[in-house]
Amino acid sequence: MYKTFFSSIYRFYLDGFKEMKLGKKLWLIVAVKLFVLFVVIKWLFFPNVLQEHFKNDKARSEFILNQLTKGE
């Protein structure tokens, strides 16, 4: 029963993709865009600064508190 259910969902999506005309070009754009965003841009240019530089939340809190009170 589960097999039939999941295979019918699989067929639904597969047929949908196969029958697309304009959609194929759109999916290509989506795929290229997601690759550029998540692999190239995120990986190369957008590290999570606090995650990378500090081991745990305690260290991150201390850093931000120091930043907030540095001028005093």
């Binding site: 841009i41 995120k42 957008f46 999570n48 606090l50 995650q51």
Partner: peptide, 14 residues
């Protein structure tokens, strides 16, 4: 959301 973590990390934490 990428920018929050990199350019606006103080803000993101707060």
């Amino acid at each position: 959301e990428f920018e929050f973590g990199t350019n606006w990390s103080n803000y993101s934490w707060i």
